[in-house]
């Protein structure tokens, strides 16, 4: 057998292990829920969960909560992306400003910002504004730090060369700075988007009136476990979908 054949055989083996792992988990879950007498409050029957998930999707009862969560996410990300890129660009224009602000932002970023949630709830109430504020705060830092890194560490030689060939400010920005910085900024934006989503669902879980996180907690408190598992699966799928979309956009933008 040649090397390519061996590699594809072992790749098939890896896939088999992966599929086996997932199937094994589901089978264990099913057996635990039906045969081994694990209480349905701790572990609902997977078939009931699947039925509930189907019902949730069919009746569209998720629409209101999904709308709340996505609106919060969009608002938070719009705020953090705009302010992060603008501030990052302004700071990156001088080495002095980079040395003043970059360590400051990096230090704040190392604090778990979720700690501010009680404060934001105090300021903005239990509704969407506190989630938007928290999501925007948390996702601001990866965006601004990556924007500074992207614009601030463009090879000086490229800038000098462009200048000496008579590039205007606009031309310098459009043809030298932006292409060099864009990949790094896009990575920052993707990271910011992911943490914004996480922190918004997290803050909905901790203290809120509506949204997908709130729905899961509500079902947990009502002990409707099968429905809660169905919602968890739904939210995980939504999050995975959004992450794939953002990663694809990032890759597309890099090529540009």
């Amino acid at each position: 057998m040649n090397a390519g054949g061996a590699r594809s055989t072992s790749a098939a083996g890896s896939h088999a292990v992966q599929i086996g792992f997932v199937v094994g988990l589901v089978v264990l879950w099913y057996l635990a829920a039906t045969r081994w007498g694990v209480s349905s409050i701790l572990l609902p029957n997977p078939i009931t969960v699947a039925r509930d998930l189907w019902e949730i999707l069919r009746t569209g009862e998720y629409v209101d909560d999904l709308r709340v969560t996505l609106t919060e996410l969009a608002a938070a990300f719009a705020i953090s992306a705009t302010s992060g890129v603008v501030l990052g660009y302004l700071i990156s224009r001088s080495t002095y400003r980079i040395r003043v602000f970059e360590p400051l932002f990096a230090a704040i970023y190392s604090v778990p910002i979720i700690l501010f949630l009680p404060l934001y709830v105090l300021f903005f109430g239990l509704g969407p504004p506190s989630k938007i504020a928290l999501g925007a705060t948390i996702s601001f830092f990866p965006v601004v730090l990556n924007t500074i890194a992207g614009f601030g560490y463009v090879d000086r030689l490229l800038i000098t060369a462009a200048r000496s060939m008579g590039a205007s400010d606009y031309q310098l920005f459009r043809f030298v700075l932006l292409p060099a910085a864009l990949p790094v900024i896009l990575t920052g934006m993707r990271m910011g988007f992911t943490v914004a989503l996480l922190s918004i669902i997290g803050s909905e879980t901790i203290a809120s009136l509506a949204g997908l996180g709130h729905r899961i907690v509500h079902l947990a408190e009502a002990m409707e476990m099968a429905r809660m598992f169905a919602y968890i699966a739904f939210v995980v799928a939504i999050a995975a979908f959004l992450n794939v979309v953002v990663s694809t956009l990032e890759k597309r933008g890099r090529r540009f």
């Binding site: 669902i201 997908l212 947990a220 995975a240």
Partner: peptide, 14 residues
């Protein structure tokens, strides 16, 4: 990559 915070209520339950 999954948002683990969605299963936080389960941890309290278990």
């Amino acid at each position: 990559g999954t948002p683990q915070v969605t299963i936080l209520p389960l941890f309290i339950l278990y």
